Amino acid sequence: MISSELKTPKIPPLTRWVLALALLAPAWWWSYTHLTDFADALLVQAGLTRQTALGEAVHFFFFDTPKVLLLLTEVVFVMGVVQTFFAPERTRALLAGKRAGVGNVLAALLGIVTPFCSCSAVPLFIGILSACVPLGVTFSFLISAPMVNEVALVMLLGLFGWKVAALYLVLGLTVAIVAGIVIGRLRMERYLEDWVLAVANGQSAATYDGDGMGWVQRLQAGGHHVREIVGKVWPYVVAGIALGAGIHGYVPQDFMAAIMGRDAWWSVPVAVLLGVPMYTNAAGVIPIVQALLGKGAALGTVLAFMMSVIALSAPEMIILRKALKPRLIATFAGVVALGILLVGYIFNLVL
Rank of each mutant, 00 (worst) to 15 (best):
T15H: 09
N104R: 00
V105T: 11
W215H: 07
V226Y: 09
I11L: 09
L156Q: 07
G231E: 06
G172M: 09
G172V: 02
P9G: 02
R16E: 08
I128P: 01
F347V: 00
N149Y: 11
I229T: 07
V285G: 07
V237A: 08
P146D: 09
M306N: 10
G161L: 07
F62T: 00
G111W: 10
Q45S: 09
W215F: 13
A205V: 08
L293A: 07
G284H: 09
V289F: 09
K322N: 12
L110I: 05
V164E: 10
A333K: 05
T15A: 10
G136W: 14
F116Q: 00
T65Y: 11
L110T: 11
R262H: 11
I241L: 15
G222Q: 09
V113A: 15
L94G: 02
W162H: 06
L171G: 04
V270R: 02
I229Y: 12
H59Y: 15
L293M: 14
G172Y: 13
L303G: 10
K232A: 14
S308E: 05
L292W: 07
D37K: 05
P134N: 01
A22D: 04
G249I: 01
G261H: 06
G172R: 11
P134I: 02
P12M: 01
A264T: 08
Y236Q: 01
L124D: 06
L6E: 10
H59L: 03
R218V: 02
L106T: 07
W234T: 03
G222M: 03
Q203K: 13
I346S: 06
H225M: 12
V148C: 11
